[in-house]
Simulated assay, not measured.
Amino acid sequence: MKLIASSFFKSTALATLGLLMATQAQAGNWDLCPGYDQPASTEPDAPRYEAFFSPYTHHWTPDDEHEQVYAVSLSRLLPNNRYCGFSLFNNSFGQPSAYAFVGKSWPGFWRAQPQLYVSVSAGIIYGYVGQYKDKVPLNVGGFSPVVIPAIGYRLSPKSTLEIQLLGTAAVMFGTTWRF
């Protein structure tokens, strides 16, 4: 129980730090994401944020210790198809976790299917602690660098279906909504 409380506290602290950093960047105090203070589009009603929800993750090699992973994230849309944000999730072992990231998307990368896009995010993940600390590479005190490639299909200007590749461990299925 102490480990879960500690993980929850650190995950919440990382998410709070990410939100604080984003707020400071927007106020012009820090330039964490160059262009953060500029909207992704000059259109007045253009979406500025994107929310992601994943109800299902498939592990390539199932393990009796694996639990279902649920994830939510919020991203700020930036010029040139860039974004930055944070995610809260429970990891494969039921530990509260967080991910602070920056990323880039390439919409319409395949001319025959202009609704398809690819993207990649990179950042710091927290949450694999205790007996599960070796389940992610380069883990130091529960913090690890992460790169997550994704492919998605734009259903409308505001919504998508997306698949994220979680290294050699799993694939995450989700949906996004822009607002």
Rank of each mutant, 00 (worst) to 15 (best):
E50P: 01
K133H: 10
V147N: 14
A15M: 12
F53S: 06
S119A: 15
L165C: 04
N90H: 00
F8R: 09
G141S: 09
S105H: 09
L88W: 02
N81D: 15
Y70N: 07
K133M: 05
N91D: 03
W177S: 00
I4M: 13
Q113V: 15
S54W: 00
L3S: 07
L3Y: 10
W106Q: 07
H58E: 06
L166V: 12
F179W: 03
S121K: 11
A40F: 01
F53A: 12
E43R: 11
F179K: 01
T176M: 01
F9K: 11
M21A: 15
D31H: 11
K104T: 13
L19M: 11
G94T: 00
F179G: 00
F86D: 03
S73C: 10
I163S: 05
G18T: 07
T42C: 04
S105A: 15
H66C: 06
S156F: 04
K2M: 09
K135Q: 11
G85T: 08
T16M: 03
Y49M: 03
K158M: 07
A98R: 02
R111S: 15
V147F: 08
R154A: 09
Y83W: 13
A13S: 13
E67F: 12
A112P: 04
S97R: 00
G141Q: 09
T176R: 00
L17Q: 02
V72I: 14
L78F: 12
P55T: 03
D31Q: 12
L14E: 07
I151E: 03
N91Q: 03
M1K: 13
E162W: 02
Y153G: 08
S75Y: 11
Q38D: 06
N139V: 06
I4S: 08
H59G: 01
A122Q: 14
G103R: 03
G167P: 04
Q24P: 06
R111Y: 09
N29A: 11
F143H: 12
Y128Q: 05
L165I: 14
S11W: 03
I151C: 05
P145R: 06
S11R: 01
S87Q: 05
R111F: 03
G35E: 01
N80Y: 14
L138W: 11
W60Y: 15
W30M: 10
F52H: 12
W106R: 09
C84L: 06
L20G: 15
K2E: 12
P47A: 08
Q164F: 08
G123Q: 06
L138S: 13
S97F: 00
F86Y: 12
P47Y: 04
L166I: 15
A46M: 00
L88H: 01
N80Q: 15
G123M: 04
M172S: 10
W60G: 12
Y56I: 01
A40Q: 01
F52L: 11
L165H: 09
G94H: 01
G141I: 08
T160D: 15
L20H: 12
A169K: 14
P145N: 07
H66K: 10
W30T: 10
G18Q: 05
M21E: 11
P34T: 10
H59M: 14
S105V: 05
I163A: 13
F101P: 00
E43Q: 13
K104G: 05
Y83G: 02
D37V: 10
Q26V: 06
A71G: 07
W177Q: 03
S121M: 11
P62V: 02
R48F: 02
F89Q: 01
S156R: 07
Y70W: 14
Q26C: 04
T175V: 09
Y99A: 01
A100C: 08
Q113G: 04
Y83P: 03
W30R: 14
E65V: 09
